[in-house]
């Protein structure tokens, strides 16, 4: 990989971990609850569709408060942060994002009781979505 020096400084797994530490300290995260719907291969990294759906009853007693999405191979690790309420009905959202290269998309969900869940998925990018 050293021979293929990237044109831009890309975010790394460490940068994603640092962002998560800022948000939640060293709190442990469980796998599951989050469904990430992403293309396996993105032909255009400028517009990559992302659907996210977190399993929750979305009642006043038990709902998803926040969902954070990161990409570990972009210049900056953050993609989007969602804040949900019981009135959202469903902790689900769709957006289109830029991915500079093949990388992992990581989602973290914070439940109303403070529990954290995480999942990740790799997207292969054939044409990058950063730079000019």
């Amino acid at each position: 990989a050293a021979a293929l020096a990237p044109r831009l400084v890309m975010a790394t797994e460490e940068m994603v971990a640092a962002e998560l530490k800022k948000l939640y300290g060293d709190k442990s995260m469980a796998d599951g609850k989050i469904k990430l719907d992403l293309p396996e291969i993105a032909e255009n990294g400028l517009v990559v569709p992302l659907n996210i759906d977190v399993d929750s009853p979305m009642t006043e007693q038990d709902y998803v408060k926040a969902v954070h999405v990161f990409a570990d191979g972009n210049p900056l690790p953050q993609v989007v942060t969602y804040k949900f309420t019981p009135q959202s009905g469903k902790a689900a959202a769709s957006i289109r994002m830029r991915l500079a290269q093949t990388q992992n998309v990581i989602a973290v969900a914070e439940m109303s009781n403070g529990a954290l869940y995480t999942t990740k998925a790799q997207v292969k990018v054939t044409i990058g979505g950063c730079g000019g």
Partner: peptide, 29 residues
């Protein structure tokens, strides 16, 4: 917001595509 009460927020970063599209849900009451 619905009737002045916020129910959904998205903080977008630079990785969000141009001409941003956002879909989400609301439980009607």
């Amino acid at each position: 917001s619905f009737n002045g009460k916020p129910f959904f927020e998205a903080n977008w970063f630079t990785a969000v595509s141009a001409n941003p599209y956002q879909a989400f849900f609301y439980k009607a009451s």
